[in-house]
């Protein structure tokens, strides 16, 4: 029974390398996705109708089409738009960024909407400009409220990044496929991969729980 797992020792390096690529994909796409997500959520609130419509349509498109389709659109479309060869890793990052930004924009919107109106009204009544109200009063509070949801999105990015293995990016999922190919084993490499995904999400969850506890504590202390 356990003998069938002896491949783990031999292919350990490959799994670890795959994990590394998966983490890189998730980290880069969550950071870029956060920046694009803030921009999208501000666009959506814009008084200029065209701008808010563009943001709405973009968010709708991303949320209502499968990620795999989006990955292929970026894979085929990006080189056409840029007119150059795009490395597969960049394609993966771009696809995941475009994808998570739409969800992050919605998370930010809900964070802003969940703040009492009185917060912006008080700031406006003090004579603060609209931009100041946003950067100093609304966004910091919204960000604090949505930290758990952002954390979940990050974990989502770790898992969703497995889909970009279709592009031949050697992430964890790709490693598992490679091992399957070379060992002729069916299930076991996938079980090892899922275990490694679990380890990553579990670690992330712990870190997030720690940060949340710290932030709650700092609310109280004078």
């Amino acid at each position: 029974m356990f003998q069938s797992y002896s491949f783990v020792g031999k292919y350990w390096d490959l799994f670890l390398k795959g994990m590394g690529i998966t983490i890189e994909l998730a980290v880069i796409s969550i950071v870029l996705g956060l920046i694009l997500g803030i921009i999208l959520s501000l666009m959506k609130r814009s008084k200029i109708k065209v701008i808010s419509l563009i943001a709405k349509m973009y968010i709708g498109f991303i949320r209502d089409t499968p990620l795999l389709v989006q990955i292929y659109i970026v894979y085929i479309g990006l080189p056409m738009v840029l007119g150059i060869d795009v490395p597969d890793f960049v394609t993966g990052v771009v696809a995941l960024t475009l994808y998570s930004a739409a969800y992050i924009a919605e998370i930010i919107r809900s964070g802003i909407d969940s703040l009492p109106m009185g917060q912006s009204e008080a700031a406006i009544s003090l004579g603060m400009s609209k931009r100041r109200v946003m950067t100093d009063i609304i966004l910091p509070q919204a960000f604090k409220n949505i930290l758990p949801a952002l954390g979940n999105q990050f974990i989502g990015n770790v898992k969703d990044s497995s889909l970009v293995s279709v592009l031949g990016i050697s992430d964890l999922m790709f490693s598992a496929q490679t091992v399957r190919g070379s060992t002729a084993l069916g299930l076991q490499p996938m079980l090892v991969a899922s275990l490694l995904y679990l380890v990553m999400t579990w670690l992330l969850n712990s870190v997030l729980a720690y940060i949340e506890r710290r932030m709650k504590a700092s609310d109280r202390v004078a």
Binding site: E121, A122, S125, G127
Partner: peptide
């Protein structure tokens, strides 16, 4: 509009201090 806000202060029923 902003200048007017600056000249006219407002105190609310629910205080609305900035919690952060």
């Amino acid at each position: 509009t902003r200048k007017t806000h600056e000249k006219i202060g407002m105190v609310f029923q629910k205080f609305n201090l900035f919690p952060h």
